[in-house]
């Protein structure tokens, strides 16, 4: 057993354990965190296949961004676990049937020789100057440039749609426009009125009024 095989089996055990944990964990936050672990371990598998760019991108996108937002939502949900599990025995036969069918289909393809997955040779050792990132970039921006751009446009449409669905003007909002706040002038707020001075009503000519009492000797 080489060192690589050992790493492969170690990662696989962790990956399968984490994936099982995702569907069996009672607490949804635990399930989300186990999913993070599963993604991270899958990135390790890709590193073993010498696809370091994809591995790092998996961590960057799924672990660093998608799952953070996911966790955000899951933490703020008030989930009643007991209620979620209510119909478990009623749905079990149907769910088990679908699950078994999936397993059967997958094993048919993976085991059969014609599927091409029977014996996969390990990836060949790459030359020292080989850059996974550069190769991927060359392929994406030359051969697959149209599918790539179409995918980008679809994502853009999804972003615009998501914003359009949630955007609503609220009447009671007290939002202040910072640019307007900064651009305010003195004359917009204060009006200077020029008035002639008048003698106070309580100042008597003899100096015995209340204004004189506060006077220092």
């Amino acid at each position: 057993m080489t060192f690589q095989t050992f790493i492969f089996y170690f990662l696989s055990v962790v990956l399968i354990g984490a994936a099982l944990g995702v569907i069996t964990a009672k607490n949804p936050v635990h399930a989300a965190l186990l999913l993070v672990l599963a993604f991270f371990t899958a990135a390790g598998h890709w590193l073993l296949l010498q696809a370091e760019f994809l591995a790092i991108t998996l961590v960057l996108v799924y672990v660093g961004a998608v799952m953070v937002l996911f966790l955000f939502v899951v933490m703020m949900l008030d989930i009643n676990v007991a209620k979620l599990r209510e119909g478990f025995w009623r749905y079990l036969p149907m769910g088990a049937l679908v699950g078994l069918l999936l397993v059967a289909e997958m094993s048919l393809i993976l085991v059969s020789r014609s599927g091409g997955f029977g014996d996969v040779a390990p990836p060949p050792d790459l030359p020292a100057g080989y850059s996974n990132t550069r190769e991927l970039g060359l392929l994406i921006y030359t051969e697959y440039v149209y599918p790539f751009e179409i995918a980008a446009v679809i994502l853009l449409v999804a972003i615009v749609a998501a914003i359009a669905l949630t955007l609503r003007k609220r009447k009671q909002t007290k939002y202040l426009d910072p640019a307007a706040q900064i651009a305010i002038q003195r004359k917009d707020r204060v009006r200077m009125v020029s008035m002639p001075s008048e003698p106070r009503a309580d100042t008597r000519p003899d100096g015995a009024g209340p204004a004189a009492e506060g006077k220092q000797p």
Partner: peptide, 25 residues
């Protein structure tokens, strides 16, 4: 001295937020 070290740094530092979220929860 890996080929995509800048990307690696971006990916690893993006995981720092988990400590904060988990601590808060």
């Amino acid at each position: 001295n890996i080929d995509a070290s800048l990307l690696y740094i971006l990916a690893i530092t993006s995981m720092g937020v988990y400590g904060v979220i988990i601590a808060g929860w």
